Deep mutational scan, measured.
Amino acid sequence: QKEELKEKAKEAVKRGNKDKARELLKRAGISEEEAKKIIKKIE
């Protein structure tokens, strides 16, 4: 489940939808700070 949400978040970032990505990562139980780092890494 968590990995699936991370994959979806990756796709969202690639489409330029960072808010959606952050939302998905939060749903995966990832903190706001972690989510920001992950999104930065994907960009």
Rank of each mutant, 00 (worst) to 15 (best):
S31N: 08
R15P: 01
K18F: 15
E3T: 08
K20H: 11
K36Y: 08
V13L: 11
K40D: 15
A21H: 01
E32D: 13
E7C: 13
L24I: 09
K2L: 14
R15V: 09
K14N: 07
E3M: 08
K8N: 06
K18D: 05
K26Y: 06
K10R: 14
A35C: 03
D19G: 07
Q1W: 15
Q1Y: 13
A9L: 09
N17S: 05
K37R: 13
S31I: 03
I42N: 02
I42S: 04
K37A: 13
I38C: 04
E3I: 07
K37C: 13
K2S: 10
K40H: 14
L24Q: 06
K6S: 07
E4Q: 10
E23R: 04
N17V: 03
E3G: 07
R27V: 11
E23G: 02
R15W: 03
G29W: 00
Q1S: 14
K20A: 13
E23Y: 00
E3C: 09
R22Y: 15
K37E: 14
K2D: 10
K36Q: 13
K26I: 14
K8S: 07
L5H: 03
G29S: 02
N17G: 03
S31P: 08
L5F: 08
Q1C: 13
N17Q: 12
E34K: 06
V13C: 08
E32Q: 07
K10S: 06
I38N: 01
L5A: 10
I30S: 01
K41Q: 14
K18I: 15
E23H: 04
K41N: 11
K20E: 15
E33Q: 08
K41M: 14
A35Q: 04
A12G: 01
I38M: 08
K36V: 14
L25G: 09
E32N: 08
E34D: 10
N17T: 03
I30F: 15
A35P: 00
K41I: 12
E3A: 09
I30K: 02
E23I: 02
K26T: 13
E34L: 06
K37V: 10
I38D: 00
S31V: 04
K10W: 05
R22K: 15
E33P: 05
K14I: 12
E11K: 05
L5C: 06
K2H: 11
I42C: 08
K36H: 12
K36M: 14
S31D: 10
G29V: 00
R27F: 06
A9I: 14
K8R: 13
E33H: 08
A12F: 06
A28N: 00
K40E: 15
R22V: 14
S31K: 04
E33Y: 05
R15Y: 03
I42F: 13
K36P: 02
E11C: 10
I42W: 15
K14C: 11
K36W: 09
N17P: 01
E4G: 08
D19N: 08
V13F: 05
E32I: 07
A28V: 02
A12H: 08
E4K: 10
E34V: 06
K6G: 06
I38E: 03
K37P: 00
A35G: 03
A21E: 02
N17A: 08
A21F: 06
K36C: 12
K26D: 15
S31F: 04
E32G: 07
E33V: 08
A21I: 05
R27A: 15
R22I: 15
L5E: 03
R15N: 14
K6T: 11
K14M: 12
L25I: 04
R15A: 15
E7Q: 11
E43C: 08
K37G: 07
E23Q: 04
K6I: 15
G16V: 02
D19S: 09
E3L: 09
